[in-house]
């Protein structure tokens, strides 16, 4: 008996966005990263085209963070002492992109400075040929103060500048426009707000091919289902032809998953929770792999083994549906 597989015919397509520039395009990256371009839902190859696999980024910091899980500190070890070494280690771990987050303060507790931000970005660009994303610490005034010089330092590299939010996007978008970079448009989990911020950012004159949409997610057990639904709805709208929702989606399961008790804490938890290290890795991997299924095009992770696990899942799904 032959089974007819029902196929949905979508009229829309996710925009293709390329992060990074090689020498040919005025940058120094040895490879670039293109995401998006889908004409169907994740892994439904029989229905439409999926020109680019979901990409995996590793988050690094401009200095060793004070509040990361000991599991992460142990894994990255010495590399965390220098952003350049950390970026190299992330590249070796298989990352498609380095996601560099600048800290609010330096290691000795002083305020982070534009000079320091420039220096770190230069070191990372010199240490790895991977495309780069750079985000500020998440305080509007400091973000703007640090991201503008970063954008200048990395001129021509087509880096992804984070993080544009509804209350603070103009300065970052202007810096991206002036130096030919891309921006990350982040909103609280809400379809209307996600679309609205893309509109506001594109109103400033930046092409849609340079906007990556970050709809925000929660970790497994901490609101992931809500984030999942928002992403699913945005993606369905994109495929139905709703133009301002057609940006590729970035989410940060690494930061979310490593924030929760289940991965952060090894002591004083029920024994039935099992091995801490394995639980923590599964938490990040399951959060990330669920988000791949909801249409994420670029996922930011923290642990190199998580990256391997998620990559293996993507490989397997691509193989079975090719």
């Amino acid at each position: 008996m032959t089974v007819e597989i029902p196929k949905e015919k979508w009229s829309g397509q996710v925009r293709e966005v390329t992060i990074g520039a090689t020498a040919e395009d005025g940058g120094t990256r040895t490879q670039t990263l293109t995401i998006g371009g889908e004409t169907t839902l994740p892994f439904l190859h029989f229905e439409g085209s999926i020109p680019h696999r979901p990409a995996l980024a590793i988050e690094i910091r401009d200095r060793k963070p004070d509040d990361w899980s000991p599991i992460l500190l142990e894994t990255w070890g010495e590399a965390m002492e220098s952003p350049a070494a950390w970026a190299k280690a992330a590249e070796e771990a298989g990352a498609d992109l380095i996601y560099l987050v600048l800290s609010l303060t330096t290691a000795d507790g002083e305020e982070n400075t534009p000079e320091n931000a420039r220096r770190v970005v230069r070191e990372v660009l010199d240490a790895t040929g991977l495309p780069l994303a750079v985000a500020g610490p998440g305080q509007a005034d400091v973000d703007n103060e640090l991201i503008v010089p970063v954008a200048e330092e990395a001129e021509g590299e087509r880096i992804l500048l984070g993080i544009c939010e509804e209350g603070n996007y103009r300065t970052i978008v202007a810096a991206a426009l002036a130096n030919n970079h891309l921006v990350q448009s982040k909103t609280p989990m809400d379809v209307n707000l996600s679309k609205q911020l893309v509109i506001l950012i594109s109103d400033m004159g930046i092409p849609l091919e340079r906007i990556v949409m970050d709809p925000t997610t929660g970790a497994l057990g901490y609101g992931i289902e809500y984030g999942y639904s928002v992403m699913e709805r945005l993606r369905l709208a994109a495929l139905q032809g709703d133009s301002m929702t057609q940006q590729p989606m970035l989410v940060d399961p690494g930061a979310e998953a490593w924030k929760v008790k289940e991965s952060k804490v090894g002591e004083g938890v029920p024994e039935s929770w099992g091995d801490w290290q394995n639980r923590a890795l599964e938490w990040e991997a399951l959060t990330a792999s669920s988000l791949v299924q909801s249409g994420a095009d670029l996922l930011v992770l923290r642990h190199p083994d998580t990256l391997k696990r998620v990559k293996a899942m993507i490989d397997a799904l691509l193989a079975t549906t090719a």
Partner: peptide, 12 residues
Amino acid sequence: NQVIYTDSYLQF
């Protein structure tokens, strides 16, 4: 519900 509502939906 065929196009997602935003405060600037009339622009597009």
